[in-house]
């Protein structure tokens, strides 16, 4: 009995957000004290199909930086993790990697903003990319550090001894071995950028209207319906990633 109660309670806790956001996204003229919307409409969802729809553009503006950052941070982090392992002071490099990752994104954005302005990147996608990479790259490097153990170096040396070229050793031995961790890193760095609001908002001065920025704008305009649609759109990619692989969401550096 107690365990059923617990299951119902947790189910309610975790499913209610989607229920309420769904009602807000289709409800019209829904004001206090009505417990349910007086009318329903799919207009906000239908308008998504229009080519110049702001939400659809926001989805693209979120996907592009998140995808780019995930790819660059994972590829860069893989090489950097190897370079750190082979350096003279790996512990120092590891400690240094915590620096941008440890500061709150908004504080980091505030600190680097004068340089972003001097580089003429303020208010542009380029500036946002630099800011997001500053967080995602050390995160990926720390996550991928565990791969480059002595064991892996021995595998690599064995492959070379058996006649592999350096490129073949990478393609046929190292990358297949690293793939599960690389996949986790790709997912996590993607989500890191996808979920970001503060850093993007500060560095882009509100000009790069990603989905998170749009949610905030709609909330500010008291447009709960569009804010709910944008919020539900934000949940789609992580949900797909969760369905593909649960474990990729949990691992921490």
């Amino acid at each position: 009995m107690r365990s059923y109660l617990l299951i119902v309670l947790l189910l309610l806790l975790f499913v209610l957000p989607f229920g309420l956001l769904g009602l807000l996204a289709v409800g019209e003229q829904w004001r206090f004290p009505a417990a349910l919307p007086p009318a329903y409409s799919l207009e906000a969802w239908r308008s998504l199909l229009a080519a110049d729809n702001d939400l659809l553009l926001g989805l693209g503006r979120s996907l592009l930086p998140a995808g780019t950052v995930a790819a660059l941070a994972t590829a860069g982090g893989f090489g950097l993790a190897r370079a750190i392992t082979r350096s003279r002071h790996p512990a120092r490099w590891e400690a240094a990697s915590y620096l941008p990752y440890a500061l709150p994104p908004v504080l980091l954005a505030v600190l680097i903003q004068p340089f972003i302005i001097r580089l003429h990147l303020s208010g542009s996608v380029g500036g946002v990319l630099v800011g997001l990479l500053l967080v995602a790259l050390p995160f990926a490097t720390l996550l991928l550090r565990s791969f480059w153990s002595g064991h892996i170096t021995e595998y690599e040396q064995l492959a070379r001894t058996l006649g592999c070229t350096p490129r073949q050793a990478w393609r046929r031995v190292l990358l297949p071995l690293a793939w599960p961790l690389l996949r986790t890193t790709l997912v996590q760095t993607f989500l890191l950028s996808w979920f970001d609001f503060g850093l993007t908002n500060v560095l882009s001065v509100g000009k790069v209207r990603t989905l998170t920025v749009q949610v905030f704008t709609y909330v500010g305009e008291a447009n709960a319906q569009l804010a709910a649609v944008a919020a539900l759109l934000l949940v789609v990619p992580p949900a797909v990633l969760l369905l593909l692989n649960k474990s990729t969401l949990l691992r921490k550096p």
């Binding site: 947790l10 189910l11 975790f14 499913v15 957000p17 309420l20 956001l21 996808w194 979920f195 609001f197 998170t212 949610v215 905030f216 909330v219 804010a227 709910a228 919020a231 934000l234 949940v235 992580p238 949900a239 969760l242 649960k246 969401l249 949990l250």
Partner: peptide
């Protein structure tokens, strides 16, 4: 079910 909150951006939780 325990993975579900990991899908939610902080901003969305705040709005909800």
């Amino acid at each position: 079910l325990l993975y579900v909150p990991l899908l939610l951006p902080a901003l969305v939780v705040g709005f909800y």
